[in-house]
């Protein structure tokens, strides 16, 4: 296999691996831009992955799976909203609680319903999974050097959710910077007092933001269990929600940056998988554990020093209480 081909295959798996991060990081963006920190992306994603796979298995439809994934994720997002907006609770505590609830209930319900050790039944390709879409002419031009290869391997042949994730990036940018909702959302994360005195309900606005977060986390979860994999496995998010948070900070809460940050993390993951156990000739074998740890090490390094100061939305993490 040529170097170019290898490289394109790595990029192809980069795309696949970065999609859940992209959905989750964009999800976090809505919430955090509105001033609600959400450490519970991981939990929402996991619950959505379970709900999606379970519904897809029962109803035999990937779309119904996606619907349930989104609904369950919105439900958990509203719990987070209820705790942190209505009751002005600690947003970190609420988020951590959601992560624990999701980790526990998915396995318990999975075992109770399907009796496969917490898994959901494997999804077959006949409609109960999102399968790869072959773009037109992919087969025809695959022989053309470089362009054909890029088109057929990298651009074509992904599930609908992959294309949706890439569409969600400009869409989020447009919502944030070109709509009234976006203007208010950004304002409420910076100075909720300004929003309140302008006659806009801080509570309702923040609830809408966490609902957006719920929807996108639902997509992230559904992608994991109904598109990338064929069913739910215990703890299948494996920290992706936290990596997405890291990507969000790395991207300084900007949608297009989020896309690139997620692609970078996905790329590191793809490289780690590709070169697991590679041998450096004449020296030693790189332990696969090191390659697996690489993305996390880089996360720490990047967040610690490389990005400069990431200034979060000013009112982030602070429950809004009217001043006396």
């Amino acid at each position: 296999m040529g170097a170019l081909e290898t490289f394109i295959l790595i990029l192809d798996s980069t795309v696949r691996l970065s999609i859940p991060l992209m959905f989750a990081a964009l999800a976090g963006l809505y919430s955090e831009r509105a001033g609600i920190f959400d450490i519970g992306l991981e939990g929402k994603m996991l619950a959505a992955a379970f709900a999606g796979a379970a519904a897809a298995a029962v109803y035999g439809s990937a779309w119904i799976g996606l619907f349930f994934a989104v609904m369950v994720s919105i439900g958990l997002a509203l719990v987070h909203g209820f705790a942190s907006i209505t009751h002005r609770g600690n947003q970190i505590v609420s988020g951590v609680a959601i992560n624990f609830i999701a980790a526990g209930t998915t396995v318990i319900l999975g075992q109770a319903w399907f009796r496969q050790g917490g898994r959901t039944p494997p999804l077959s390709a006949d409609g109960s999974r999102f399968t790869a879409i072959e773009l037109p002419f992919a087969e025809a031009i695959s022989g053309v050097p470089v362009v054909g290869l890029v088109y057929s391997e990298l651009i074509s042949g992904h599930s609908i959710l992959v294309y949706l994730a890439f569409l969600a990036v400009p869409f989020t940018w447009w919502v944030l910077f070109r709509t009234r909702f976006g203007l208010r959302l950004r304002a409420v994360g910076e100075n909720p007092g300004a929003v309140d005195t302008a006659g806009i309900s801080v509570t309702w606005l923040r609830y809408r933001a966490v609902i957006c977060t719920g929807i996108l986390c639902g997509f992230a979860g559904a992608y994991l269990s109904v598109a990338q994999n064929a069913g739910f496995v215990k703890d299948m998010t494996a920290g992706k929600g936290f990596i997405a948070l890291a990507a969000l900070i790395f991207a300084k809460w900007k949608p297009v940056n989020v896309m690139f940050a997620c692609l970078l993390f996905g790329f590191l993951d793809a490289v780690a998988i590709r070169f697991a156990g590679i041998e450096i000739p004449g020296l030693f074998e790189v332990p696969p554990q090191f390659m697996q740890a690489l993305p996390y090490i880089l996360t720490v390094v990047l967040l610690a020093g490389f990005i400069g100061r990431a200034i979060p939305p000013k009112a982030g993490g602070q429950p809004y209480v009217k001043e006396r």
């Binding site: 950004r186 304002a187 910076e190 100075n191 007092g193 300004a194 309140d196 005195t197 000013k314 001043e323």
Partner: peptide, 8 residues
């Protein structure tokens, strides 16, 4: 205390 969004 001004009710302004400072980075707007």
């Amino acid at each position: 205390h001004f009710m302004l969004v400072e980075n707007f």
